[in-house]
Design a protein around this nucleic acid. Sequence first.
DNA 1: GCATATATTGCTACGTAGTCGCAATATTGC
DNA 2: GCAATATTGCGACTACGTAGCAATATATGC
Lengths: 374, 374
Amino acid sequence: MPVIDQSGMRRLNTHAVLRVLADTSGVVTNAELVAQTRLSRRTIELILADLIARGWVREADPPEAAAAAGRPKKYFAFVADRALVLSVMIVPPQVGAVVADAQGTELARASSRLVNDDDAAAAVHMALAVAGEALAASARDRDRLAGIVVGVSGTVGVDGVVHTSPVGPEWPGKDLRTPFQDAFSAPTSVENDANLVAVAEHAFGAVRDESTFVVLTPGNRVSAGVVIDGDLYRGFQGAAGELVRLPVSGPDLHEHPVARISSPHEAEREAARAILRRAAAGDEAAAALAREFFASVARLVATIGWVLAPPVLVVSGGLEGVEGIVRTYLGEALAALDLPEMDVRVAPLPRDAVLRGGVRFALDSLGADIFGID
Amino acid sequence: MPVIDQSGMRRLNTHAVLRVLADTSGVVTNAELVAQTRLSRRTIELILADLIARGWVREADPPEAAAAAGRPKKYFAFVADRALVLSVMIVPPQVGAVVADAQGTELARASSRLVNDDDAAAAVHMALAVAGEALAASARDRDRLAGIVVGVSGTVGVDGVVHTSPVGPEWPGKDLRTPFQDAFSAPTSVENDANLVAVAEHAFGAVRDESTFVVLTPGNRVSAGVVIDGDLYRGFQGAAGELVRLPVSGPDLHEHPVARISSPHEAEREAARAILRRAAAGDEAAAALAREFFASVARLVATIGWVLAPPVLVVSGGLEGVEGIVRTYLGEALAALDLPEMDVRVAPLPRDAVLRGGVRFALDSLGADIFGID
DNA sequence: GCATATATTGCTACGTAGTCGCAATATTGC
DNA sequence: GCAATATTGCGACTACGTAGCAATATATGC
């Protein structure tokens, strides 16, 4: 049980004020902060004075057409770029990086492509370069960097070491935390890319309204991101949701033509989508493939359902433009199975899901640390 | 984000002191409380004075042979029975109740047997009577009752209404919360019995050292209790871990003779155990049955493993006296499968697991409420 | 039995943080 | 310009935790 003294109380209340500021886009007044924090105006004033001194808040000009009788309000604005986060993606053949401020606003990005998926050292080297590029492009002081998140295919331990990888044999055992931590001197965490997709679906995707859900990306890169009460659940060695080796998938599903729907290679995704479009257009051979594939996806959904019973399950992946077809075939396949009550949603990946999820995750996991509190 | 003022700070610190007191069996001194809470002695003194006035603490006699140079210490004792919890179990044909104090010490118990498993109304009636009996036997003031937990077979919504039941068709739809809440006027929650077993394994069973684990009770009453970061995970409508309808179980597993190992009827459990003992003694027919059953259990373990990757999975159930045999057969079956890294433990049910788990769960879920704080 | 050593208590003084409320102030509307 | 008004600025107050000194109750040595 935590105990608290006056200075701890002040830290807590300062954090609450900063949270409100960070969640507000424009300028705020004293009165708004009082209403949202339930602290007295005097306390808000004192905390704001402190935050201004520490560079987190600045007095702002009143917005247009904000004139009323009485003494005019003071307006304050959050200095969002006083702290930055870096979100890096290493999903061969793609490498990317985004720099965002403490509000999650993207300030800069950079990306590149790898020539050889399995060359882990080259991939890390490229990712470091791309991250440096994005940081330079943000034109912000590097020592404002408060945290780094690296999203990568495969399972990763809390120590940032890749445990298993669908990419190639050179990846397991690779430490992805240290290079970034050393290069940019900021606390770094490494996460499975599907987990970051789940965070993205939560923050700006199909489950904005939920706090417990599973995001399933079916296909030859099948995996699931599990969020429970708003927190990612990783499992031991990050292996939660690693459904590739689940017996129900069916032994040769990974070779299935439609399974390429979740490939990181756009050409393969497009080939899979083409099959679905042909199926929808009446091609019987394509329809048979689709039924076969989604019967297997449905078995996965049922398995997750009976083990975890998430209120909501999102089927996400390379579904741009074929959501309707997916919904139809998956719905048919699900109807044939015994399922617990749950809301199965089909959604395309939010744009830049891994990188944007990484930004969100970095901000969430840094918590109060991003403000330099406790 | 929570804000806090001085009175909130005092409540928090009072709670911390109460927690230390509740976790301590004997008497404590001022100095011990200072060391454990990191509050100043003065603050401890003031909080203790308040707690004495409110009846939670009394000054106690010094323990034997506690004489040393200097002014003698003051000793304080926690008045554990200032608040009580009631743990009720309705697992036909068994009904039971335990009354415990705020430290979880059992003060009284009562139990009975039902004649007809499926008569839900009679079962509730009986459970209310048994609970009243236990309360009377505790010889404590009834208005000290701070919370009630009812453990029942099947899935239960957060509203205390049975959702699905392995017992019989009369159970789904039955509201189990209201009768107890009304009869004893205390906040009541209804939980799946396997979940309470998981809590018991955590508190005094095979996973005392873990905070994330799954407790799997295989057999015809197969179900799993999922604990994540120390908290029970229920799933939508309490359906998490409801593995009965999972395809991998195999269609006729529920009829399997060894599956009776988790029956609530002792005679059936004994019959299943007898088969395992015969198998261990060299009976080939029995061994074949055992292999068949544990192959199916192993598939369940693998499924849970790939979905959740719990660091630890406990196989629990009516295993008294046959743990070794179970370990052997399960070990063999697991070796034949592709599993994520996890620690699979075989453990007998802790004695009175459901009722004792219920007591623990009641205390945990009441949190600070049991002390009347916030 | 009395003085001394010692550890703990009882209590006062103090600093910090949140709240309350009054007077000063800057603006609009007439 | 003057009244009306909403907000600021700030002093007074209270609650809580902390620091530290003096009083106190016991054991021990002579």
